[in-house]
């Protein structure tokens, strides 16, 4: 049983528009049997934070191409992408590079 994880989420480049225009979110992920990874985080965001048009944010079980993910200010490609295990106090940033956000 993993303990709850408190993380800081940030949306930018227009992605925040899908979250009622709110850029920063401090959230606590509830404890669950397996440790939290980014893949599960995306599902959680979709269920709990995303306000509209999920297809503009996620695609399959990853983010939509064109949306960048930074984990603690580093490219998520360096951190194992979807498999990265979230640590307490991690900072996850989503930046849309698509036209019009």
């Amino acid at each position: 049983m993993a303990a709850p994880v408190a993380i800081h989420l940030e949306f930018g480049g227009g992605a925040e528009l899908l979250f009622n225009g709110v850029k920063e979110h401090h959230v606590t992920l509830p404890s669950q049997s397996e440790p939290w990874d980014v893949k599960q985080l995306l599902v959680w965001i979709q269920r709990n934070l995303l306000k509209e048009r999920p297809e503009l944010f996620v695609q399959g079980d990853s983010v939509r191409p064109g949306i960048l993910v930074l984990i603690n200010d580093a490219d998520w490609e360096l951190m194992g992408e979807l498999d990265y295990r979230l640590q307490d106090q991690d900072n996850i940033v989503f930046i849309s590079t698509l036209h019009g956000g």
């Binding site: 930018g12 480049g13 227009g14 925040e16 528009l17 899908l18 509209e52 048009r53 503009l56 064109g66 960048l68 930074l70 200010d73 490219d75 940033v93 930046i95 590079t97 036209h99 019009g100 956000g101």
Partner: peptide, 24 residues
């Protein structure tokens, strides 16, 4: 676009997102 987004983020270049015709 990726390089630019990273640079702006890492070196806090301010930008203002304004909805355009094709937003959402």
């Amino acid at each position: 676009a990726k390089e630019i987004a990273f640079y702006n983020r890492l070196f806090s270049v301010p930008s203002v997102s304004i909805p355009s015709l094709d937003t959402k």
